[in-house]
Nucleic acid binder design. Structure first.
Lengths: 210, 210
DNA sequence: CCTTAAAAGTTAACGTCGTTCATTTATGGA
DNA sequence: TCCATAAATGAACGACGTTAACTTTTAAGG
């Protein structure tokens, strides 16, 4: 056999990304053989080269999909919390941390990709990364309207905020000495500490609009 | 030739670690062939297996050496800043960031090691990592004595502090869109933002001891 | 001194994996 | 029905981690 029947015309590109995400999560390492990906997809390894220039391209596609999913999670929280911007800062961070803790290997690929991929690991350089940052900045701006962080530079605060959450996640992510619950507790504790610090900036200035 | 003369008895273990650090930095990726390490050391690849169980063991040794160097840098700053604990928080963070920006690949190996290494990436689980954290906690405690962070839980603050600095470093580290100076500026800006936030907690309570 | 056993590398070889090449087969239009 | 093209296959290559078998230096003992 050399070319499959039209019946099984399942977009091999999409499936490869999905299966790679699955295998990577299962393995706990993004060093998965192309043969296994191909097997999961239902083809052979060289067939993948018709859809991706090489293995790095596949991993990059997987990384982009990761940013897609992260954005969707955060956008959903943003929608739900539309009326409470300060609450969004907290819940959005929780959701971010949960995403990372539930997809540790994918998260590592997104934010600490092997240099071979040739991508800057700056998340806001990709379109979806930028949108995630935009959600955060939006939450900060609206929180500022509610009296928090008076007079603060939003972009600075945003980058510090993201640094803190990402740092907490990153430090706790693959610590084998902690069970998942402990990782979550430790990460949430950092987020809470940050939120308390921001909250402290607002107590002196109750909602400016009221 | 099968066994070298006693004259050239250069501890191959140490040299392998040094050369690996050098090659990894030069390459910008810790995926360096053992053959190259061996060549740099002056032996053949299989000879390394007399000193390290496998390649992972070599990388782990390199990681430990990284924590050694980081600790020494931070300890030096701590010594120099002994009289100004709040200043140490800033200068120690600067030094930390400089270390990371000057040794990006080593830093990545320390804090985002490939799972294959079998080490938790929790830095304070290793002895030298714990000592770095101890320096930070010490700085926080003494800053508290000077009126900053009144009534705060030091361990919580310490973990948040480290999360922020590590997060900033990690996000800016390998962003190919930024030149080294820009990376430094962005990282320092996050540190400064954090320091200003901590400083704000102290302005209301001038040095308690005076 | 000579012999001998262990030590420490070296060369050769194997297995895995990413990647390429030539080949084969299904597809869609003339 | 026949042909050009697209798409995937199986075989093969090269790099690399790792292991096995061999070789030679070192150190000790008779």
């Amino acid at each position: 056999m050399a070319r499959p029947r039209k019946a099984q015309e399942l977009d091999i590109g999409r499936r490869a990304v999905e299966e790679t995400i699955r295998l990577v999560a299962q393995r706990g390492d993004f060093d998965v053989p192309l043969t296994e990906v191909a097997l999961a997809v239902g083809c052979t390894a060289p067939a993948l080269y018709g859809h991706f220039r090489n293995k790095c391209a596949l991993l990059i596609a997987m990384r982009d999909e990761g940013f897609n999913r992260l954005y969707e999670v955060k956008a959903a929280v943003s929608e739900r919390m539309r009326s409470d911007p300060f609450g969004y800062l907290r819940e959005g961070s929780y959701a971010y941390a949960r995403f990372a803790l539930h997809n540790p290997t994918l998260y590592r690929l997104m934010f600490s990709p092997p240099p071979k991929l040739g991508v800057g690991d700056d998340p806001w350089s990709s379109e979806n990364g930028r949108r995630v940052l935009a959600l955060l900045l939006n939450g900060l701006r609206e929180s500022q309207d509610h009296g928090y962080l008076p007079g603060a530079d939003l972009r600075r605060q945003g980058l510090m905020f993201w640094s803190t959450v990402h740092g907490a996640v990153s430090l706790n992510l693959e610590n084998q000495a902690m069970d998942p619950a402990a990782k979550w507790d430790a990460t949430r504790d950092v987020i809470d500490t940050l939120m308390e610090m921001i909250a402290a900036t607002g107590r002196r200035n109750p909602p400016a609009g009221s």
